[in-house]
Design a protein around this nucleic acid. Structure first.
Lengths: 333, 333
DNA sequence: TTGTAAGCGTTATCAA
DNA sequence: TTGATAACGCTTACAA
C-alpha cells in the first residue's frame, strides 16, 4: 500500500560510506561501535528517515514482540478497563497487543491457529467464553506460544490463569453482608457455561451453607447485560407473588446488578437496600453513579496485569496466580 | 519463547519427497500444482502440524495484513462498541487489529513511528485526542502507511476522516427539539480541544441562531465522564439561582448527559423532561436504561467501519466520508 | 572497531 | 507441473 519504498540499512550504509552492519550497530543499544561512526550513521539515517524494519528483525530473531489478546465480550465496560491497563503495561515492555475478536461469530480454533501462524510471542485470553475443551482440542504442535488467561479460571494444564481470588472476594463480601444481618440471600448468574469459569456462585453458596442456610435461590440471566439482569429479576419476583422471600441479591457482575435494581424499583416498588439489598462485582464506573450507588468488588486489575507482564517478560514463573481485590462499600448493601 | 521449533516448508518438503516450492504451492490457493502432489503435501504437513509462517510471508510480500488502531479514550463504552465492530470487519478481510494505547501517558509521535516500523498496512485513529499538528509534524518519510480517522473530523490533508455527519445529525436532533417547543437551549461540551474535532456544538448553535436564538449557554465538562457531566451541570445551575434559564440541555455524549441528569434530579429536584429536557449522543447501552431513557443519536458504526474496510481493501477511494446516523427518540426530550 | 558470510521462512520469477 | 535462483531486511557469529 505504500507509495515509495522505505530506506534500508544497506542504502543508509552506502550513503554513509560504511557497511550495513555498522548501520545496524548504530541502532543497536550497547553494540560496539565508534561514537564517531555512530553519529555519522545516525545523521545520514535521519536525512533518509530510516528506521529499522521491525518485521525483518522479528524474522531474524524469531520474536515478534506481539501478544495476541483474545476478547469475547465487548458489552461489559469492565473489559475496556482491562484492555486499557493491559495495553499500557504491554507497551511499557515494548510489546504490542494484537486484538482478536472471538465472539460467537468467530471460530476459536481458527483464531488460535492463526495467532500461532503469525508468530505471536504469547496469547492472552481476556474473556469468559473460551472453553477449556477448545484449547485441549487444538493441535498447535509442540511449538505453540504460551497461553495465559486473565480474569477467569481454567483447568487446562497448559494455561496459566491469572485471576482475582474468588474465594477471598466472596468471603469478604459475604462477611460484610452477614454482619449487616442479611439472612435470605439469592445469587444471579450469567450464562451457565461462562459463569462457572468465574467460580463466584460456588463460594457464595458455600459461605451461607456453612452458616446453616442451605437453600440459596439462583436467578439465571441469559446474558451479561442490563436487560438480561432485569429480566431475571422480574421472572424471580413474579414467581413468588406471596411476598419477597429474600433480603439480598448478589449478582455476578455490576451490569446484572444494575439491571436488577432498575426493575426492582420501577416495576415492584422495592427499595434498595431496605427491601432488598443488591451487590455487584467489578466496580464498573456505573456502580459509582448515585442512582445505583452499588456495593461491589473491585478486581485488582493493575496487579493482575503486572503479574501477567512479569510472566511474559520471564521475570516470574508462569504459574496460576490469584490475587485479592477490594470490597467497595456503598449504600446498596 | 517457544520450546520447540516449528516445522518449515523445507522440512515438510523433505519429508514428502518434493521441493519446498511445491509445499508452498500446496498452501497457495490457485497455484498450479498437481492434485496428487497437493494431497501428498497436505497430508505430510498435517502430521508435522505445519502451517505457513505468516511473518516470513509478510517480509517477502511486504504486506503484513496488520492495521494499527490508535485508541485514546478507554472510558467511553461507545469505544468498545466501535472496537468490536472494527475488529470483526477487519478479521473478515483477513486483517488483524494491532491496538495502540495513546492516552495521555503515551507519546503520539513515538506511537506513529513505531507502527510505521512494524510495517503495518494502515493506521486507524479511533479517538478524539489526536491533534492534527502531531500528524503533520511527524516525518514519516514518503513511505508512511495510509492514515484513517474514525468518528471525528480532521483537517490534515493526508488523512481521510470517516465520520458521522454532524451537520445532518444535529439538524435532525434540533428539528425534533424545535418541534417539541424547546426555545431555551444550552450545550455541554467535553474538553475544548477534543470537542472541536467533533463539530457538534457548532452545528447546534448554528441551528438556533438561524431561528433568532443567539445566546446559547455553553457548559464545559472537564472530561468525558459521568462525574464531569454532573459537575458541569451543577456549576451552571448554581450560577443561576434566580431560576432555570434553559429548558433544554444538549450534551456532547451520553455519559455527560447521564451525569447531568443525575445531578439535576438528585440535587436540584428537577424533572426530565418537564423542567429540563436532556439529549445525549452515541446511543450507548446506558442511554436505554429505564432510569435515563435518554433521547440520543446513534452513529452509523457499521456503515462507517464498512467504508473504512472498503478503503483498506482498495475497493473504495480514500476520501473523506461522512455518513448519516439515526435519531433515537426516548422520553428525555 | 569493522567487515564478511550465513541464515530466518517465505514469495517472485524464470527455466526446465 | 516442478525445480532452482534471487530477494525481502535484518541478526548472529566469526574473522580481520
Amino acid at each position: 500500500m505504500s507509495v515509495k519504498k522505505r530506506a534500508t540499512a544497506l542504502e543508509v550504509a552506502k550513503a554513509a560510506g560504511v557497511s550495513k552492519w555498522t548501520v545496524i550497530r548504530a541502532f543497536t543499544p550497547g553494540a560496539s561501535i565508534a561514537e564517531s561512526s555512530r553519529q555519522k550513521v545516525l545523521a545520514v539515517a535521519e536525512t533518509m528517515s530510516y528506521r529499522p524494519n521491525l518485521l525483518a528483525r522479528s524474522l531474524a530473531t524469531s520474536s515478534t514482540q506481539h501478544v495476541a489478546v483474545f476478547v469475547d465480550d465487548f458489552t461489559n465496560p469492565h473489559k475496556l478497563e482491562m484492555l486499557e491497563t493491559l495495553t499500557a503495561a504491554l507497551q511499557a515492555e515494548e510489546l504490542v497487543a494484537v486484538i482478536v475478536n472471538i465472539n460467537e461469530h468467530f471460530d476459536h480454533v481458527h483464531a488460535l491457529l492463526n495467532a500461532d501462524q503469525r508468530q505471536v510471542d504469547a496469547i492472552v485470553l481476556l474473556g469468559t467464553s473460551f472453553r477449556d475443551e477448545t484449547l485441549s482440542d487444538v493441535r498447535l504442535g509442540e511449538s505453540a506460544p504460551p497461553l495465559f488467561v486473565l480474569a477467569r479460571d481454567s483447568q487446562t494444564s497448559r494455561i496459566s490463569p491469572i485471576s482475582c481470588d474468588s474465594g477471598h472476594a466472596l468471603a469478604e463480601i459475604c462477611t460484610h453482608l452477614w454482619a449487616r444481618g442479611y439472612r435470605r440471600p439469592a445469587f444471579m448468574t450469567g450464562p451457565r457455561t461462562l459463569s462457572t469459569a468465574l467460580g463466584r456462585r460456588q463460594h457464595f453458596e458455600a459461605f451461607w451453607m456453612e452458616r446453616g442456610i442451605e437453600a440459596v435461590p439462583t436467578l439465571s440471566a441469559e446474558r451479561y447485560s442490563h436487560r438480561a439482569g432485569g429480566d431475571a429479576a422480574r421472572a424471580f419476583l413474579q414467581a413468588s407473588p406471596s411476598g419477597l422471600k429474600i433480603d439480598l441479591l448478589m449478582c455476578e457482575n455490576d451490569i446484572l446488578a444494575c439491571g436488577a435494581m432498575d426493575v426492582l424499583r420501577s416495576e415492584f416498588a422495592l427499595r434498595v437496600p431496605e427491601d432488598l439489598a443488591i451487590v455487584g462485582f467489578d466496580d464498573t464506573a456505573i456502580a459509582g453513579f448515585p442512582t445505583y450507588d452499588l456495593t461491589t468488588y473491585r478486581q485488582p486489575i493493575a496487579a493482575m496485569v503486572d503479574a501477567l507482564v512479569d510472566m511474559l517478560a520471564g521475570r516470574r514463573a508462569s504459574e496460576p496466580v490469584s490475587l485479592p481485590g477490594e470490597l467497595v462499600l456503598r449504600s446498596s448493601a
